[in-house]
Design a protein around this nucleic acid. Sequence first.
DNA 1: CATATGTCCTGAGAGC
DNA 2: TGCTCTCAGGACATAT
Length: 294
Amino acid sequence: MPELPEVETMRRAILPAIGHRIVAVVAPRSGLRPITFQPHLPKLRRRLLGRTVRGIDRCGKRLVLELDDASRLVIEPRMTGLVLPDEPLDHAHIRLVIHLAGQLAGEAKAAKHRVQDGHRAGCSIYYWDQRGLGAVRLLSLSQFWQLCGPARIGPDALEISAAELQQRLGHSRRQVKVALMDQQAVAGIGNIYASEILHRAGVHPAVPCCRLDDVQWLAIQKAMRSVLHDAIRCGGSTLRDGTYRRSGRQEGGFQQHHQVYDREGQLCLRCRQARIARFVQGQRSTYFCPNCQK
DNA sequence: CATATGTCCTGAGAGC
DNA sequence: TGCTCTCAGGACATAT
């Protein structure tokens, strides 16, 4: 569920970790199946300890922590993963905790004491994941490029031009909503925002890409940017299941602005004529207004 | 090559 | 009340 706006919101929340050194890595035990760790936990922990976070980026729907030895910690929340700067109320689904200390007072030993005393001077990164489909990977630079390089992940949905979007998808026979969720074509869009983007663009979700003209591709690209920017401004979307949260159990706000997603049978807020319809595309729910999107 | 389908997982909610 | 069933959708493996 975390798509570009949610992951970007998580990224911004943990930016204070930059410049801090990893002093503890904890994976709480639970009866749940473990998430994917690469490499496995003992090695992952050993390699992380003592590293300093140099930068925090986003690659599509993944968070990327750049460490001082040029390795990359890639966190992939998939369906229910959350990256938080403070402790979630539900401890049962905490999968990994990274404690960091400031480097000013130096020694990891002193830093560890501060961590135990309530980590006053440092900060922490919590990875919480209810369904456990997510993954945490510590990768060398070359491994990172294999996973997140241009061969696997397309241009970011916030950056891509209309011309490049059209060039990448314009010849495809796939239905446009399905194609927009192809991370190799354009990175960051998932099921919720694909529906919202196409509604704002006025394009029917089942139209094959190759039937769209220049004007429609431009409309899609403009809608993509504006919808995603609006959603980031709101801190993402917390759906009915309530899984997605910001720090302190705070909900996102963009669900209040959804025009079509999860609004089946309700009046379209733009035309106020038709009711929002739902159908299934690639085993996923698509929502659209039959009047605004033809 | 392009496109379509099945799979992983947990918890919520429906239906009986 | 308590059981079983279905659904939610991210990315990847496998199938067509």
